[in-house]
Nucleic acid binder design. Sequence first.
RNA 1: GCCCCCAUCGUCUAGCGGCUAGGACGUGGCCCUUUCAAGGCCAAAACGGCGGUUCGAUUCCGCCUGGGGGUACCA
Length: 473
Amino acid sequence: MYEPVRVRYAPSPTGALHLGGARTALFNYLFARQKSGQFLLRIEDTDRARLKPGSQEQIEEGLQWLGLTWDETPLIQSERKAIYQQAANGLLESGGAYRCFCTPQRLEQMRAEQRARHEPERYDRRCRSIPRAESDRRAATGERFVVRQAIPTGGTTTLQDLVMGTVTFRNDTLDDHVLLKSDGFPTYHLAFAVDDHAMRISHIIRGDGWLPSSPKHLLLFQAFNWLPPAFAHLPLVLGPDKKPLAKRHGAKDVLEYREAGYLPQAVDNFIAFLGWSPGTDQDIFTMEQLIQAFDLSKIQASPAVANLERLDWLNGQFIRRLTPDELATRVASKMPGVPVPALTPLIPLVQERLRTLNDAPEMLRFFFEDPDTHRPEQLIAKGREPAATATALTSAAAALQGLTDWTPESIEAGLRALAERLGWSSRDLFMTLRVAVTGRTVTPPLIESISRLGKDTVLNRLERAARALAGPL
RNA sequence: GCCCCCAUCGUCUAGCGGCUAGGACGUGGCCCUUUCAAGGCCAAAACGGCGGUUCGAUUCCGCCUGGGGGUACCA
């Protein structure tokens, strides 16, 4: 293992950055930052059939949104074809790999027979015994071939995984898998090893899916005579349906969480706790605190189901921790046409009521537009008469009209006095006023809302509601 | 089929031989209260099964069961 900590997140550009990938990236990032090491990005685009244009940009934007900034320029595998071929040649030279001339048809037939005999489906190593001179000659004539790793036929390979512990494999259960494809591109197995060595990666922190092939990877490092990095395999992240998030159709892009009004801090906290826990009761962390507390050895070996309700709660927690200015800016981005300064004074009314930023526009709408129509059944408190309600509304307008100063205190005093005069409970009166002024039954606190709405607007809406009550009835 | 991993409340988890099995989300109730939230208090809720090891297993070992992953010229 190399000394300075250098880790990488190595997505293949086949789609968006989903939660599972984001967690892998986050763990790599936290580990690197805690150890004062580097966090690198590598694009594994050696499968040109699955490549999706724009995917790399999408992934990078997702990482940036989450605050996972990488060091150095991302390494692009497709630009390094020659280097992998060279590495494969070296292995051919040392006997760590061999050319395989078997056709896809023969391989398929071989597997079919193995299936029929209930044997493990593995390459039968027919080409492994082709003498080197003959192999060179056939390659020189232009015959198509792949390069396969020559796995030791006996013994065992043991991996000390930082998460899974000691894992031992019998070498004779391992396949001579393909390292270099006939199109000259490397497979993952070759490319990652060559690159991790070139990048002097100290720890490979990657998804659980790689665990079964990790002995071959270790053997490959040995065949190259390279110092292998340490391995840490992360358990899967499952969706609410218990299906792997990564493979689920419609696995959510992290940027969709941004659109849905989530804060990156909340998403970071949420995914940090998918499979990891600090072992304390603290459940709200700043990024700095996460970096401090992170510990590979505390990662759970079992898969974690993403509990999106917890994300909602976390998001509310982080929204409440924002300053009013910060929140106003973020809410403004969800309310086109409404300037930040108009929003700032309203923030205290909604801050503790928001679960996502997207809840804000609906909650604040009445500050910017009059309610369209008043539904009598909402306006009239249970057991009250329409006429009495209309009177209450006009009386309220009159009472507020007479106020010398327009402060929450004086408004509240005036309204409570009115309720008493009317013989109404303040509960009933306030609900009627709430609906008249906001058009809704669920709103921020009424008195505060009235005071911020301004006298003219409030009087207008009260009178309008009173007329609506009188009109159609 | 073969290889590998996993297993505590519904979910995320604490636990690293002796605990009334702790916390959080969610759920239910109560308090606060002008609605809704927020906040406070309380409650229900878990060690998959069977064998060992041990004075003693949630904890260590084995088997079973149940999940999951891999088994490609995908990553």
